[in-house]
Structures are given as C-alpha cells and as structure tokens.
Simulated scan of single mutants.
Amino acid sequence: MKGLILLFRFMTRLPIGFDPKFDSDELGKGMRFFPVVGMVIGLVLFAAFWLLGYIIYSPMVMAVLLVIIEVVLTGGLHLDGLADTFDGIFSYRSKQKMLDIMKDSRLGTNGGLVLILYFFLKVALLVEASNSSPVIMPIMLLLSPVIARLNSVVNCGSAPYARATGMGKTFVDHTDGLAVLIATIITAIFVGGAAYLFVIPYEILIVIPVVMILGYLFAKLMTRKIGGITGDTLGAVVEISEIIAMLGMYILAR
C-alpha cells in the first residue's frame, strides 16, 4: 500500500492526503500496481468528459480540454520522457552521447517535433472517435491510461537499466515476471469489466497483448540503442502505448 501511494505521489499531481516517508524499495515494488494509477487517471478523465458534456458541444474543444486535463494530472512527466527519448535516440550518436542528450533538460528539435505530432494525433483520435460513436471517446479516456501503464511494467521486467544509477533503476530492480503478470491481470480485469459494464465487444481485450508486444519490442530496441531503459524511455513508452491503445480501440469500434 505504501508503494502504491508513493507511486501516485511520484507519477501524478493528484492530491494524496497521506504523505509517507520516501522509500525507494517500496516505490520500486509498487511498479506492479502502476495500472491502478492509470485507472484513477482514466476515471478522472471519464468523469470530466461527462461533466464537460453539459457545457461543451464541440468534439474538438472537448478533446483539447481533456488532453490538457490529462497533462495537468501527470504534470507532463511522461511527455518530458517522450521528448528526451526522441532527442537522444534520433541524434544518431554513441550510446553514451545519447544518454547525455536524454539527461539534458533542454528541448531539442526531435523532442519538439514528437510532442507536436503526439498532440495532433491524440486530439484527432479523440475527435474521430466522438464522430464515430458517442461512447468511444469516454472509453478511450478510461482504458488507454491503464493499458499504457501496463507497458511501463513490461519494460521494467524485460530490459536492464541503462545507467548505473537513477530513479528508474529502482523500478527495474523490483520488477520481475510475477510483477508483470500481476499488472497484466489487473489491466485485463479492468478492461474486461469496462467492456461488460458498457456493453462493448470483448474483442477490445485484444488491444492489451498487441500493446504489450509492441512495448516489449520497444524495450529491446532501447537495449540495443543505449544498453537498456531509463526513466525517460519509461515515460516515452507510456505516451506511445496510450496512442497505440487509443488507435486500436478506434479501429475495433469502426
């Protein structure tokens, strides 16, 4: 429980009343429950969708506002990792130079481009989902944060940490096959429960293994490029997986 609370405090900007003493081991062990963080974020976005629906009638405005709300909920933590990862990987330098670039707080051209493309694609998917069916956008908002965070657990369990030290190292050190299995079961139960509750075809569960396979391949690519994963690549895989999950749900819903 302490690890989960620490995970909420570290990975979100949600107001958590209880402030436990920081413990890196407990934080690392909490990684197996990372999809639970996604559940809370998804539920907040889901609620925001229905509340805003009473005053916002434009799908475009709705999509932009919901994307902004999600950024506020996470503090842009994973987006920072996404930008840093693309700045480093697409610099085509040595492994060490890539790691140095990723650690640099400045935003480069590749990082800026990927953020622009990310937001365009995310808003477009939400708008198109809204035009396709009134229930698809809220389902995307509810489920994609959960599936995306499962992939972060997959990465921690399938690749070494690229640096000798770093905050992300505690997650890698405490994530094994059992942790990945627990995270997968939590995600599958949540997605399956949502499918049952909202009368959605259970084919939506196919999105989970597809995203996991792509996440595993991403971890192997990072291992080949920089010798493993880092806190930045963990943030990147969350954001990339969320887009893939949304795209998968959009395709299945059509």
Rank of each mutant, 00 (worst) to 15 (best):
G3R: 13
L4P: 04
F8M: 03
T12V: 06
G17V: 11
G17M: 13
K21N: 09
D23C: 05
E26R: 04
E26V: 05
M31Q: 05
F33K: 09
P35G: 09
I41W: 00
G42T: 05
L51N: 08
G53E: 08
I55T: 11
I55Y: 06
I56Y: 04
S58N: 14
L65C: 11
L66A: 02
V67R: 09
L77Q: 10
D80A: 09
G88L: 03
F90C: 07
S91V: 06
R93A: 15
Q96Y: 12
L99D: 05
D100A: 14
M102R: 01
D104M: 07
S105Q: 09
N110E: 10
V114R: 00
F120N: 08
A124D: 15
A129P: 01
V135K: 14
M137A: 14
M137P: 12
M140A: 11
S144F: 01
I147R: 00
L150R: 01
N151C: 14
G157D: 08
T170E: 14
F171K: 14
V172R: 01
G177T: 10
G177I: 09
I189H: 07
A194Y: 11
V199Y: 12
V207H: 00
M212V: 04
I213M: 13
G215C: 01
Y216M: 06
L221D: 06
M222L: 14
K225Q: 14
I226S: 07
G227E: 12
T230R: 02
E239S: 07
I240P: 02
I243Q: 00
A245D: 02
G248R: 01
L252C: 14
A253H: 03
A253Y: 02
